[in-house]
Amino acid sequence: MTNAVTGAETSNVQIVSEDDVVRVQDLKLNFYTALGVVRALNGVSFNIPRGKVLGVVGESGCGKSQTGLSIMQLTTGRIEGGSILFREFNTGEAIDITRLEKNGPEMRHIRGNNISMIFQEPMTSLNPCYTVGNQIEEAILLHQTQDKAEARKRAVDILQKVGMPNPERIADSYPHQLSGGMRQRAMIAMALSCTPTLLIADEPTTALDVTTEAQILDLMRDLQNEIGTSIMFITHNMGVVAQMCDEVAVMYLGRIIERATIDDIFYDPKHPYTISLLRSIPRLGVARGEKLESIKGTVPDPYSTVTGCPFHPRCPAAIPGLCDAVMPDETFVAGSRTHTVRCHLYT
């Protein structure tokens, strides 16, 4: 298969689409620490078409945030392989983000105009010294309009859109004067103020109550429908995934181990890790008073290396002699061009 964006050859298992906004190929990211090397991403590939929501799920430490941060070039690790092709839809131009200088003008332009990120921890992206309104206005003044009154108006508008009850007052508040949920919404407002082509949302609702969460999800759906924003939605809440995403990538130890449409992930999952994950969530009205299923053991620590399939120490279906020795390749599930899995059971 030839890459529509660059004309380069891509692996024949990777799912690609004509209207991909971002295409990550074989991304490798390492951290060099005093305790050793952390191989955070070991060849991650995925695409997100225009206007689609890709859910990225997996246990903490599997590399979800680092994947998002790599696209933004905000990771503190070293990208040592692969590419991140980003296509700005209005211009049709494709750029390999990994080739851009981290803090150069092009990357800054992309961060301000094309790709936005909502961070796991709201205080990391809100400046405590400025009012929420000022921070949003500044972003708008920098990238969209020079007119201060217009910027103010847009800032208040967007705060209204994220469901702030009294947007004028909130605009004049400092971050510490807001509740956790309001701060998260302020940050989302900031991320949305540039009407991004791609929105990377890293656990945007994990710290929120269900009622606020429902409101934020609604907002993101509107954005997707009205502007055609593509969303990379990082979460470990399978309920949120089911409600929000078009497609899902399941990660384990720095690799995508299954990739499928939302319906296939829930109704026809293949990888033992995906299946176990789904079996371990409590479901309303099901099996109360019975044991929940759990995955034995824990994710190995990041400094260790596991031979063979990285899931084999915890996998109830592991094949002795094979799974502990040979890393399975990513393959298409028989009869499908939209469902890939990385497991010996399907090769």
């Binding site: 469901g163 009850p165 509740s179 949920g181 309001m182 269900v210 009622t211 969460e213 429902a214 409101q215 999800l217 609604d218 759906r221 809440n237 399978m238 309920g239 949120v240 995934v241 089911a242 409600q243 995403c245 939302i262 319906d263 992930i265 829930f266 109704y267 789904l278 969530i281 479901r283 309303l284």
Partner: peptide, 25 residues
């Protein structure tokens, strides 16, 4: 009722958009 309606159900075949609670806590 409002709290329960807002629970995101882990079923992509049953998508819900709960009625928004106006205002804040």
């Amino acid at each position: 009722e409002a709290l329960l309606a807002a629970i995101p159900k882990p079923d992509p075949r049953r998508r819900t958009r709960p009625v928004k609670l106006p205002g804040d806590v």
